[in-house]
């Protein structure tokens, strides 16, 4: 038991105040791999903001004198079939890839969490309807569902966001519902009810905080999936338009030169790979620190 007992008379000196955030950081610091991944993602986010300003070349400007050049001092990552600097395109594309995945996951998170809370807290018929709808979505493979949605809505970055969001919602809803069901069993929830607390208050003050740690873990993992899905859709020509420096688009347009100038495919591929890997590593690290089931063992 990790309870510190305070003597009502003694121990007046304010010993290190307990703070959940400090506690989290103390444990997270020990996860070296996750820490490195976090630094990587942090750098990516910085690049997303300053990318266009530090890019050595204009990512849209063709240069027919330097087509499909390999990596060199002038072009760190070489050039593509129109002679555009791949490194600059990657820098600028970071913003697109992160925006798409973050906003899709964020929207999915909000919708899924609300549905999950309602479903888990109220139970009964509402729960059944929401969960059966989720089951329908779960029965499609993720990417296939996204393709279908984009096919209906038409190609474009915004529609990719909507598609990725829609296939995220059921996973979030189910996760939150499970966490809600177990949080609902806490005696202090019953205590709040006995005090006359409204449903909204109980849900947001007493139940939702119990789901946060699981949500944080899941969001990081999900961002990785979303980047993959968005790139996949763009690769299939359903996402960003061909001239945008989106990583999936770059991958797609470079595939004809796989044999002759493999770096055109390799560079965006590595970018996608590292980003998804980093998000998953962070997710694993967070799980070790936050998940109560693992924490206690």
């Amino acid at each position: 038991m990790s309870t510190t007992v305070i003597d009502s008379k003694k121990a007046q000196q304010p010993a290190a105040q307990y703070s959940p955030l400090k506690e989290f950081w103390r444990n997270y610091k020990k996860k070296k791999v996750a820490l490195i991944a976090s630094v990587f993602i942090f750098l990516l986010i910085v690049i997303a903001f300053i990318g266009p300003y530090i890019a050595p070349y204009d990512p849209y400007e063709p240069n027919y004198d330097a087509i499909l050049e390999g990596p060199s001092a002038a072009h760190f990552a070489g050039t593509d079939e129109y002679g555009r600097d791949i490194f600059s395109r990657l820098l600028v594309g970071t913003k697109i890839s992160l925006t798409v995945s973050f906003s899709a996951v964020f929207l999915g998170l909000i919708a899924g969490t609300i549905l999950g809370l309602i479903s888990g807290y109220f139970g009964g018929r509402v729960d059944k309807v929401i969960m059966r709808c989720c089951d329908v979505f779960f029965s499609f493979p993720d990417l296939l569902l996204a393709i279908a949605i984009v096919a209906i809505l038409g190609p474009g970055i915004n529609n990719v966001i909507i598609a990725v969001m829609i296939f995220s919602v059921p996973s979030f809803a189910r996760l939150v519902r499970g966490a809600t069901l177990s949080a609902k069993e806490n005696v202090y929830v019953e205590a709040a009810k006995s005090m006359g607390a409204s449903h909204t208050r109980i849900i947001f003050k007493h139940i939702f905080p119990e789901t946060i740690s699981e949500l944080i873990i899941f969001v990081t993992m999900r961002v990785g999936t979303a980047i993959l899905a968005a790139s996949g859709l763009s690769f299939l020509g359903l996402g960003a338009s061909p001239e945008t420096p989106e990583w999936g688009v770059m991958l797609s347009s470079g595939r004809d030169y796989l044999g002759t100038a493999s770096h055109v495919v390799l560079m965006p591929g590595i970018a996608i790979f590292l980003t998804v890997l980093a998000f998953n590593l962070i997710g694993d690290g967070l799980r070790d620190v936050l998940d109560p089931k693992i924490k206690n063992s």
Binding site: V187, Y188, E190, S194, P209
Partner: peptide, 23 residues
């Protein structure tokens, strides 16, 4: 009416560990 009832009747629970929100 129910909210009002729960203002005038309060409960004390058995398990002081579980009935207080740890957060």
């Amino acid at each position: 009416e129910l909210t009002h009832l729960r203002e005038s009747v309060q409960m004390i629970f058995q398990d002081p560990y579980a009935s207080l929100n740890p957060r």
